[in-house]
Amino acid sequence: MTNTKRMKEDILRMSGVNPRKCMKCGKCSGTCPNYDEMEYHPHQFVSMVEEGRLEPLLASKSLYTCLSCMACIERCPRGVEPAKLIEAVRLLKERQKDGNHLTANDIPARIDDDMPQQAIVTAFRKYTK
């Protein structure tokens, strides 16, 4: 089994998503509130995972700009749940050696006195394994 094929299987297993259910209506990307910040948009994650084009996704900053707001999950007419796929790709990246996106040393410069603890713990859960 090739590495790409194995990674694709991992992503599908972790996310529980079946990209073949997608009918390419684009509603996920149309409703994505962070569309402008996403290099690859939710519908592209769905089609690129299905096609096995994983390297561009694994290297993309889109992994960190998805807000996990679940708008694409709620509004997909086919129940594809793109955000779960994005999360699985992100986890695959972060579980690799040196795959973490955020370290404790990054935090002081990025917060102010009002920043709730919730923001910091959530960012660590999303950006670091």
Partner: peptide, 19 residues
Amino acid sequence: NECCGGYMAIENADAAKKR
């Protein structure tokens, strides 16, 4: 029921502010 930007406040404060 649209996102406020959430934890993007840590990653990219300007993008969170837009939201």
